[in-house]
């Protein structure tokens, strides 16, 4: 099934929860979903017989410019039907929160922890949400565009990058 078809299936099923469909300017056609609907949409994607997107290839956080909303991007692939879809969701940067799909796609467990680690996006319902690559007591979320490193970490000076 091609990406536009998947979009229309999703729109018919979820209506307003599906915000947008991005095809231009991206090489991976993307369905934009509301953050609270992510889990439901993903459940549908993975379980619907015609879709069966059983493999979550990638989950990435993204910060566009340091001002607007943060986003989370999911790349799905179906090992059975051999088709792809990208799902994107936006969440306000003050209190970023997305529903976790870690219990549905176990691989999302670590990916979500990394997105939390790097962007501070809170994944509701994640079994064990804590930093994964950085130390537990690291301050700030480094991949946000407005990130300014702290001066010290445990008494060690953090060198400024030019």
């Amino acid at each position: 099934m091609e990406a536009p078809d998947i979009f229309s299936v999703l729109q018919a099923k979820f209506g307003e929860q599906i915000v947008d469909f991005l095809e231009e300017g991206t090489l991976n056609p993307t369905v934009v979903v509301k953050p609270e609907a992510v889990l439901k949409v993903c459940e549908f994607l993975s379980q619907n017989e015609k879709l069966q997107l059983d493999s979550l290839m990638n989950l990435a956080g993204h910060d566009q410019d340091g001002e607007s909303d943060l986003s989370v991007i999911y790349h799905f692939y179906s090992t059975i039907h051999d088709h792809y879809i990208t799902v994107k969701t936006f969440t306000p940067r003050e209190e970023p929160s997305v529903v976790s799909i870690a219990n549905l796609y176990r691989t999302a467990d670590w990916h979500e922890r990394e997105a939390y680690d790097m962007y501070g996006i809170h994944f509701e319902g994640h079994p064990d949400l804590k930093r994964i690559l950085l130390e537990e007591d690291w301050e700030g979320y480094p991949l946000r565009k407005d990130y300014v490193p702290a001066e010290f970490y445990r008494g060690m000076r953090i060198e400024k990058v030019k």
Partner: peptide, 16 residues
């Protein structure tokens, strides 16, 4: 302007 997710088969698996 735009984005891409590209995957290839690395010795260890799918490198995207």
């Amino acid at each position: 302007k735009g984005e891409v997710y590209f995957r290839s088969e690395n010795p260890r698996g799918e490198l995207g």
